[in-house]
């Protein structure tokens, strides 16, 4: 029974193959396939990041260095903010003093 079914399938496959014949490969088919593969390799190489980026990242993303870097940045930003804020505060305090000693009518 099983053999009979297999024989039928073989026959059916043969008939189907004859009904849709596969076109012959072009003479330079293999060459063009290799060219495609080379091209995709080149594109992949082009997309790869430079070595220095990877080295830099491996350095920056070390936990200790990353934390230290973040602290330094926080200090720089905070320090600049304190300077800016105190300059603003100084200006406000100056304005307040001037308002108290110099009547607006005279200024």
């Amino acid at each position: 029974m099983k053999e009979e079914i297999e024989a039928k399938e073989d026959r059916l496959s043969r008939v189907l193959r004859q009904a849709r014949p596969a076109p012959a490969l072009s003479p330079r088919f293999q060459e063009s396939v290799w060219r495609c593969i080379e091209r995709s390799d080149l594109e992949a190489e082009h997309l790869e990041s430079p070595v220095w980026v990877e080295r830099l990242l491996s350095l920056l993303l070390r936990p200790r260095l990353a934390i230290a870097g973040a602290m330094v940045l926080l200090l720089i930003g905070g320090g600049m903010g304190v300077l800016d804020g105190s300059a603003e505060a100084r200006q406000a305090a100056r304005d307040q003093y001037i308002a108290s000693v110099a009547p607006y009518a005279v200024r």
Partner: peptide, 14 residues
């Protein structure tokens, strides 16, 4: 950190 420090500082003393 600049914005936070600046705002805090000026709010404290302005």
């Amino acid at each position: 950190s600049f914005l936070v420090a600046s705002r805090m500082c000026s709010r404290q003393f302005s």
